[in-house]
Structures are given as C-alpha cells and as structure tokens.
Design a protein around this nucleic acid. Structure first.
Lengths: 206, 206
DNA sequence: ATATATACATACATTCTTGTTTGTATATAA
DNA sequence: TTATATACAAACAAGAATGTATGTATATAT
C-alpha cells in the first residue's frame, strides 16, 4: 500500500506536521525523535524522511504555519483605517492575539513549543534573530498608532510614542510568556484581557 | 592522582558546575552530554557521577546558585526602609537586576540558559511552577511599594496598586526576555535602564 | 502499454550517550 | 599503624537515534 496520489501525499505531510507539533509539545523538541513523530502520524520514518530533510525542517514548517500569517494580521489590525481611536486599536490588536491563543489550538501549542519547549542553539539560534526582527517591526506599528493618538490629543503622558510603544511591546511580550507558562490559567490567562485594558488605560487622558 | 582532600573535592565540584554552565550555554541543556561537561572541567565522567546523580541535578545546582540569592536581594531592595520614594525604589530594584545581568557573568549565562537554552518538559517542567511562584511573590512586593506610593499621592493614574504591579512585572518580564535574546545589545540591552525609567515615569504624577 | 518517478516501508550500519561496574591511590579515622 | 571510606579514572554493556541504502507497489507520464 504505497505510492499514494499527490493529495494523499500532501495529507501525509500535514499529518506529520501535526504529529510533530503534538510530540514537540509533550516531549520537547530535543527529546522528540523522528520515530516518535512517525509513530504518532502512523507512518514510518521513511515517510518523514521523504517529506522533510530532518527534524529542524519540520520545526520550521510548524513555525511558519503559525507565524507567517500572524505577522500579517498584526500588521493589518494596527495599520488599517478604523473607526475606533488609536489607543483602542492597539488594545484590540493585543486582545485579538489573546483570543487567537485561546481559540486556535495549533497557535497555542506552537507558541508553547517556541517559548518553553525549544533550545535556541545551533540551527535554531537564527530564529532568535527573526524574533527580534518581528519585535522591532511590531513595535514600529504600535509606535505609529501612538503617534496618531498623540495627534488626536488622547495621551495622558509626556512620553514619546516610541517609548510608549517599547513599553507596550515589552508588556505584551511578558504577558505572552506568562500566558504560556500559566498552563492552569489561574494567574494570567483568565485576566489577560483585563491586564491589556489596564495597560492602555494608563495611557489615556483623564 | 586521586583521593583529593575535601577542599580539593569541593573545588572539583565547583569546576564541574562552572563547566556545565558554559557547556549548557554553548550547546543547550539537551545536547550537552556529561562527557562534554567532564572534558570542559578536565575530569572524567566518573568525577561527574561522583558529585551529581545526573544532568538534571547539575542543572538545579546552577539554577539555585543564581536564583536563591537573587530572590532575597529583590525582596530586600523593595521591602527595606529607604530614603527614596517608593516609585524610585521600584525603579532602582529593576535597574539593579539589569546591573547584575551586566556585571555578573554567571547570572547572565544562567538567565540565558533558563530562558532560551532549556526545554521545560518532564523533570524540568516543575521549574515552571517555581517561576510562577516567584512571579507572584515579586508582584506582591511591587504592589506594596505602589501602595505606599499611592498613600504618598505620587501616582498619576487611577489604576490600583495591584494592576500597576502586574503591569510592571509583565513589562520587566518582557524586558528580561528581550535583554537575553538581544545578544549584540543593539536593541534592548543598551537602553534597558531608559526603558525602566520611562516605565516608572509613566506612573509619576505630573 | 510500458517506463519512470513517486511515496513510502524496511533493513542496516554507525555513532552517541547513558548508567554501572570495577579498579585504585590516598586522606582520614580509629 | 592499619582499616576504611573517599574521590575519582577507566572499562564495560546496552539501548537510542540518526542517516542511508534498498526494496516495492502504484500513480502518472509518454
């Protein structure tokens, strides 16, 4: 029972990726073997080696599946014209990400893998650079929103839009890390949106 | 040349720990073998197995060496009576941690290992719980400082001390993560203290 | 209809890594 | 002074994990 149709093969590929995500999450990337992944996908390592060169390539496939679309959406929600004020726009874009984490299992698992089930050495260390690049990109978008807020006289503080954006970005970065670590949800997950609201309210005039 | 004196043995133990830190940093915890660590310490695995049961125990030794004293100091700088105002006290305690990271190589390397060179699965997953516990402890201390600031009418906002403390903690958590990832220092390390100042200034009246 | 490339499964060889066991020189206790 | 425990080194055994090589049934192209 071999030589499937192209659609079958593509399905196998996706099953391998999904299995790898589950295995990475349960055992960590390093301790996950291609045999584990293959077994979970109900194929042999032969199939895995056919579709991927090695474990690293599977890792990147998982990452790209979640993060490539994510960046675009983050961009959109901060850049697109909107009827709400810029501060609410920032608040919403952060909340949307939290919603995504809550609703999208693949995204939640991928975040967890990237944050606490992966060691950034050797082939993985270049991912760190990508993360830093995304950060400055996102910070830039937030800064633009704060500049609009400043023009509309919505800000309470004398901080520059850049300083506000960096502070917001660091806040959200910390929130995401804690969100992931707080698996039972009692400490951060249940109040994540409230924390975002407070963070933005701190900037609002009055 | 065996059977050293007790002082020699303790020295060997410390050399193993220091070597493990270096090896963990370079190769990640998972890819570091006891042979790597032993070779770096210029001993054999026999010595490693004499002093430690396995790699996990070395990991915890490294962690304890840095984090046990750290918690106390963080406590002190926030709780002890001081002549500066509470907001400056918070600011200083955060800056001190940044100074520590800059000056204390062991601490810097340990942070880097814990944050991006370790997978929190199996035996390591209970560390996550410890981290969360530390977080709520630190947040509690910051909250107390904000309460004093509120009593002294130093705060600009209508946020509760708890909300302010959580926001500060998440900000600092994000800053530490970015500080570690920003290895060349161009993005966060060089302006870490300014970011802290801005964060606190946002809370100051006027 | 036949040839070929595809999509795997199976088998093999090699390298790591670990844990344990054994050996041993020497501080140290008695 | 002798016995014993200490602080390792060295050797051993076993299992994992990886990559590759080989086999093969069947879509698909010609």
């Amino acid at each position: 029972m071999v030589r499937k149709t192209k659609e079958d093969a593509e399905l196998t590929r996706k099953r391998i990726i999904n299995s790898a995500r589950a295995v990475f999450l349960a055992r960590g990337v390093s301790r996950s073997t291609l045999e584990h992944i293959a077994a979970h996908a109900e194929v042999t390592r032969g199939a895995v080696y056919w579709h991927f060169e090695n474990k690293t390539e599977i890792f990147h496939a998982i990452r790209d599946q979640v993060f490539l679309p994510l960046i675009d959406r983050m961009d959109d929600s901060l850049t697109l014209a909107s009827d709400v004020d810029p501060l609410t726009q920032i608040e919403n874009s952060l909340c949307v990400t939290i919603d995504d984490l809550n609703n999208n299992i693949e995204m939640r698992q991928t975040y967890e893998i990237m944050m606490i089930k992966c060691e950034y050495v050797d082939e993985f260390s270049l991912v760190l650079q990508q993360i830093l690049n995304n950060c400055s990109s996102i910070t830039g978008k937030i800064k633009l929103a704060y500049e609009r807020a400043e023009q509309q006289n919505l800000l309470s503080s004398k901080l520059t839009p850049l300083a506000l954006a960096l502070d917001t970005h660091l806040f959200f970065s910390g929130l995401l890390h804690m969100w992931v670590k707080d698996a039972d949800g009692t400490m951060f997950r249940h109040q994540a949106k409230d924390l975002i609201k407070s963070h933005i309210n701190l900037r609002r005039k009055q």
